[in-house]
Simulated scan of single mutants.
Amino acid sequence: MPKEARPSTGEQAKRHAFAQLRQAILHGEMAPAQRLVENELAEQFGVTRASIRAALIDLEAQGLVERIRNRGSRVRVVTVEEAVAITECRMALEGLCAAKAAVAASDEQLTRLADLGAAMKKAVADGEPVTYSDLNHQLHDRIREISGQQTAVELLERLNAQLVRHRFKLALRPGRPQQSLNEHLAMIEAIRARDPQAAEAAVRAHLASVIDALGD
């Protein structure tokens, strides 16, 4: 059967353009301050300019794109000061999720957290910062998932998307994975001990360390 044609207009076309643009920004294929020309993007994704414009408006709402009057759109530049402010917000939300995860986690979920911790240890020992960074993101995602706090999860997804470039730079900084490993292991141990106060404190301590590293 012939492949179904992708719609060039309408809500589905906008969602397609939004997903493709968001992925390109998060994966670093579009750099901060890069201009986003509607005509070029419409041709690239096979949709109309109206669909691209609607997608850019949604991406602006997520903090990934900024629209400059009379100059069009560009990938948003997140300053260090903004990254610190976002991380301060993460402290409250991720601390909440960790506390809830410590109460809600099943034995199987606790085992999976321990497995992630072991994989993170191996990545650091093997000198694989990119693998460690991926596992780091998986750990935070898993804790949020276990927490069941959907409102916090949705807010954190938006906040974390704005920090991708800063987080990647930190992951590649010499010595940073070794430092953050112990912080992540403390988070895992507190959740496995089913101690919500200790879990929240461990997350806050970790993110305070991230803030210090951002300022270096």
Rank of each mutant, 00 (worst) to 15 (best):
M120S: 05
E145M: 13
M91I: 10
A102L: 06
R144C: 13
A152Y: 05
L110T: 09
G175R: 00
P2G: 03
A202Y: 03
E43H: 11
H184W: 00
A123Y: 08
H206L: 04
R74G: 08
F168Y: 14
V153D: 14
D126C: 01
E4T: 12
L110E: 05
P7V: 10
G175Q: 01
S73P: 07
M187S: 05
L135A: 07
V103I: 15
T151A: 15
M187H: 05
E66M: 09
R22V: 09
R53K: 04
M30R: 15
Q178L: 03
V65T: 03
A198T: 04
R158L: 14
A208I: 04
P177F: 07
V78L: 13
E81C: 00
D134M: 12
A114S: 10
T131I: 12
E40H: 05
A24E: 11
A5C: 09
I57A: 11
A99W: 02
Q197R: 06
L185P: 07
H137M: 08
L207I: 11
H140D: 10
L93E: 06
L56V: 06
D212H: 11
I191M: 03
A213N: 07
R90V: 08
A98P: 12
L96Q: 14
I188S: 07
G215W: 02
P196D: 00
A42P: 01
M1V: 14
H206D: 10
R167P: 02
C97T: 14
Q109G: 07
A152M: 05
C97R: 09
D195K: 09
G215S: 13
V203M: 11
E154M: 11
S209C: 01
H184R: 01
L135V: 03
S73F: 04
L155P: 00
Q62V: 10
T131C: 02
R74K: 14
S147A: 10
H16E: 11
A61V: 06
F168G: 09
L56P: 13
